[in-house]
């Protein structure tokens, strides 16, 4: 199937993923050390970079969509993100009256 053909040709996907990961890592480093933004903005930008890089790696290296159960994997990851956001953001929101 698709996965088998993929192994015979040059692994473009991996190279692109690798380069993009490097770019995102150094970009984050640059933002933190020498962009001159406020601390809050720096944290925001770094978090966004991190999310992009995490999803990049899921697709490029961990072949999330490629196996027979690709659909299930994708739904699972999406649900995991949903729960993580609900638990963290929901707790912060709910408990905000004490803080």
């Amino acid at each position: 199937m698709g996965a088998n053909n993929h192994h015979e040709s040059f692994p473009w996907k991996h190279v692109v993923g690798f380069v993009l990961s490097l770019v995102l890592t150094f970009a984050a480093l640059w933002v933190a050390l020498s962009s001159g933004l406020t601390a809050k903005a720096i944290i925001g930008v770094i978090v966004i970079f991190a999310i992009i890089q995490a999803s990049l790696q899921l697709f490029m290296f961990m072949h999330m969509t490629e196996s027979d159960s690709g659909k299930i994997q994708t739904i699972n990851m999406a649900y995991a993100f949903f729960i993580a956001i609900v638990v963290v953001a929901g707790s912060v929101w709910t408990m905000s009256f004490v803080l």
């Binding site: 949903f82 729960i83 609900v86 929901g90 929101w93 709910t94 408990m95 905000s96 009256f97 004490v98």
Partner: peptide, 18 residues
């Protein structure tokens, strides 16, 4: 089921929005 848990402590004192 994951977005209803606060109904166990409505009286805890969270705001009207929550």
């Amino acid at each position: 089921s994951f977005i209803v848990w606060v109904h166990h402590f409505f009286t805890m004192g969270a705001g009207p929005a929550v």
